[in-house]
Design a protein around this nucleic acid. Structure first.
Lengths: 340, 340
DNA sequence: TGTCAACACGAAAACGTTTTCGCAAATAAA
DNA sequence: TTTATTTGCGAAAACGTTTTCGTGTTGACA
């Protein structure tokens, strides 16, 4: 058991002052070569490392980033987190993660907890409940305190800060046009409640594409599934009662569930019904047939978010940078679940 | 922009000393009711919250836990992390995550970074390279410094600390016996390089089961796949050249890959070949047929690891607790990929 | 020999807390 | 009225750094 050594310990052992030790280790030329060598050797031998907490207190910066995500078991958030962690680590930052579990209360508690000095800035994706209640005072207060925030994916226009989003509208439109160009007419959308900004955008993209191609919009071809519930029966009913030859799903799970049920109902994918999902996760890559899907480039998104945040935190110029919204271009990955 | 308020600010505004403010807010009865009320009201109005960093420095504890995992995109680690975060948060701890990317160098760097005061203890699963090189001095040094460590899943007997593991051997044995009891004779194992302790245990479980039932062990029925590489051709070749009626895979990806290739080769799952995998992730739940699999209860594992760590960190008794190894009992979840 | 600069180092403040101890004033007891 | 006790509060140290400023010693130069 050899506990951590401090500047004071070194100073005492070598009968010099703490200031001298500190300067010597920073190679200050205020200190003679002899003394420096002696101190450095001692420090090295005892494996001295400055205490991060003391540094944080002194410098008023922790080199920690707080990340709040609704759920980590979802592939998309996991990859975004990966990107954040990667970029942050390269830049010497650590990442403290809290999971809001789609609850605004947890989001608030976690953010307040971390905001009291533990982190220098936040990266977050809004919880479902936060979006539903449209309640952002916790974010506003933190921004007011001068704590920078970067929102990604689930964002809101109510808050002025840096953001990273997907071109959801355009890519949904592209997906639907892919259906149209391969001959589909009765195109369905399987989506979540509309308080999710991303689902809304994808819905608009879907509608826009139909309009642009003069296809009549049938409201009953839009299936809204409750969030995180058992919904096999809803899906089954939907495909039994509607004539559909293509379906766009706003996430991977919905897509796989649809495919599985469609196949059980005796239809062929993609010949009878084509499917496109969102999120290029393992489900999409290993299903039979493999799923045509929208790659959201989560890792890139995470890196960008981290870069935006760190740039702002380390900003030194006199003029404050205006807030940016970066758009990540999704890619449609064509595989076996659609006709190509 | 209203920056964070400190004890000093309150003291100045109210013309009392910092000590008085501190005591008043802690409801000390050294302070008169009048003064306390005044101070509390002021603090509440300005939303005073003590600075975590200052507290950490004072108390010599950060209430942060460092978690080092080889990879977060893998479902198992994600769920373990989930469990850690959940339990830690309940107990008022935050979680700093670093991803070692299966590299010992990153593992070392990250741990040293965090060990300089940022965290009170570690929870980690060893990187592949660390297990391969059998190099644990970084862990030993941290333990020497009095920093508690809990290892989970990928552990080593070289290090004395608290651990949480799966009963890999027994559950592998149970899986193989399930094959045997349903009539399989030629049982294959698809595994990873043997420096992974978990793969080794599962291999022993496999071998034990065969021995116990007087089934001859055929070394060529054991397929060792390189870590994280494209290995479809190896798998194809394996099933073309060997007569197999059941296969145990040490992870979910291998199991899905095998199932996909087996089906492509024209075999029926489970009638021609049964499959059991490890990790009850979404792949297993959404494949066709659904995969019989070993549920590792990652979330529980994470909770247990966090509990072990926090108990040790908050340990106050005079006698030091001996190190514990908790064993999580895996569960065989029987689904369509095996005969039941 | 006296003056000045350069050199090498130390004292102290600061970051924001908590906590021990001391001390004056107010009250109670003698 | 004197003494003892309580009450209410402040000063200061401590946690581990960094950094500014001050200061004693040395050597060079006039």
């Amino acid at each position: 058991m050899k506990p951590k050594i401090t500047l004071k310990d070194i100073a005492n052992e070598l009968s010099v002052s703490i200031s001298t030790v500190s300067k010597a280790l920073k190679n200050s030329d205020e200190i003679s070569k002899d003394t420096k060598d002696k101190i450095k050797a001692f420090a090295k031998f005892y494996n001295y490392r400055p205490n991060n907490i003391a540094l944080s207190l002194k410098n008023k910066r922790t080199k920690n980033i707080g990340v709040i995500i609704p759920d980590i078991v979802h592939h998309f958030f996991t990859t975004v987190f990966r990107g954040i962690e990667k970029y942050a680590n390269e830049k010497g930052y650590n990442v403290i993660v809290c999971i809001s579990d789609e609850s605004i209360e947890k989001e608030v508690i976690n953010m307040e907890m971390l905001a009291n000095g533990s982190i220098d800035g936040f990266i977050l994706s809004l919880s479902a409940e936060t979006q539903l209640k449209n309640e952002y005072t916790h974010l506003k207060e933190l921004l007011d305190q001068g704590i920078p925030i970067v929102l990604f994916d689930r964002v809101t226009s109510e808050i002025e800060c840096d953001k990273v989003v997907l071109n959801d509208n355009e890519i949904a439109r592209e997906a639907v046009e892919h259906f149209i160009s391969t001959g589909s007419k009765n195109i369905a959308l399987v989506t979540t409640e509309k308080y999710f900004n991303v689902s809304e955008s994808r819905r608009y993209g879907y509608l826009d594409a139909l309009k642009a191609h003069n296809i009549k919009i049938e409201e009953n071809l839009i299936l809204t599934l409750p969030h995180d519930m058992e919904n096999d029966s809803l899906i089954t009913e939907f495909f039994q009662h509607n004539k559909v030859d293509a379906v766009l799903c706003v996430n991977e799970i919905f897509a796989i569930q649809c495919m599985s049920i469609i196949q059980e109902l005796g239809f062929n994918v993609p010949n009878d019904i084509s499917i496109i999902g969102f999120t290029d996760g393992i489900l999409s890559r290993f299903s039979v047939p493999r799923l045509t899907t929208v790659a959201q480039h989560g890792e890139l998104m995470g890196e960008r978010a981290a870069k935006l945040l760190i740039d702002r935190m380390e900003w030194v110029d006199e003029v404050e940078e205006p807030f940016k919204t970066e758009v990540i271009n999704a890619t449609l990955i064509k595989r076996g679940s659609s006709i190509n």
